[in-house]
Amino acid sequence: MGLSAWTGKLAGDARLDRVADPLRARVRRVLGSGPADAVLSGRWLGHPLHPAVIHLPVGAWLSGAVLDLSPRHRAAATLLTGVGLAGAVPSALAGWHDWAALSRPQRRVGLVHAGSNLLAVALYGASLAARRGGAPGVGRGLSVAGLCAAGVGAYLGGHLSYHGRHLTSPHPASDRADADAVSI
């Protein structure tokens, strides 16, 4: 099964609603009004905040992966692991805010997107602990696993942005029929 077919199956999997529906109600209560809504919506920015702030954790983690290749730069990689973790907090808050406004099929895909990113954060947190605890090799391995989890999350986020919300796609017209067939 290809990735597009997988996202289509996620969008149609009503079992995810058992988690998504009550979670959506809580997210809307906490983040859906007042100052949180004003900041997290991105209206002040002119577009959703989540796509703009996600660059900090992803950029830090990707840069850290490159620096991990050189023994002389591994301290900087450890610093970037922590920077990415700190940047994940506003990214997640903005993401949950946006997620609560999506359609039910989009929320299903978004729930798995969030789960993958939560796994990435957990792996990077464990990586930072291992690095600081004297097990740098374990820390580097956990960072690689975290980057993989973040990659899955990024794929699903991109799917939501380009296909799930029916925004203008960068795909040529000949590819749109296939993309529309699996879009949410």
Rank of each mutant, 00 (worst) to 15 (best):
M1D: 13
L3F: 12
A5T: 10
T7C: 12
K9S: 09
L10S: 07
A11F: 03
A14R: 03
L16G: 02
D17F: 00
A20W: 00
V27F: 08
L31Q: 01
L31E: 00
S33R: 14
S33T: 15
P35R: 14
V39A: 10
G42Y: 10
H47P: 00
H47T: 14
P48V: 03
H50Q: 08
P51Q: 06
V53Y: 13
H55Y: 05
A60D: 09
L62Y: 12
S63D: 02
V66A: 15
V66S: 05
D68A: 01
P71K: 12
P71S: 13
H73V: 00
H73K: 11
A75P: 12
A76N: 03
A76M: 13
A77N: 07
L79K: 10
L79Y: 12
G82D: 09
G84V: 08
G84T: 13
A86R: 12
G87W: 14
G87A: 13
G87S: 11
L93R: 14
L93Q: 14
G95M: 12
A101L: 15
A101K: 15
S103I: 11
R104T: 15
P105E: 13
R107V: 00
R108F: 01
R108W: 01
A114P: 05
G115A: 03
S116D: 13
A120T: 10
A122M: 08
A122Y: 06
Y124S: 04
S127C: 10
S127L: 05
L128W: 13
A130C: 05
R132K: 06
G134T: 09
V138M: 11
V138P: 00
R140F: 02
L142S: 03
A149V: 06
A150L: 08
G151S: 15
V152E: 07
Y155I: 02
L156T: 00
L156H: 01
L160N: 05
L160W: 03
H163Y: 03
P170C: 01
P170F: 00
H171V: 14
A173E: 11
S174P: 05
S174I: 05
A177C: 00
V182S: 08
I184A: 11
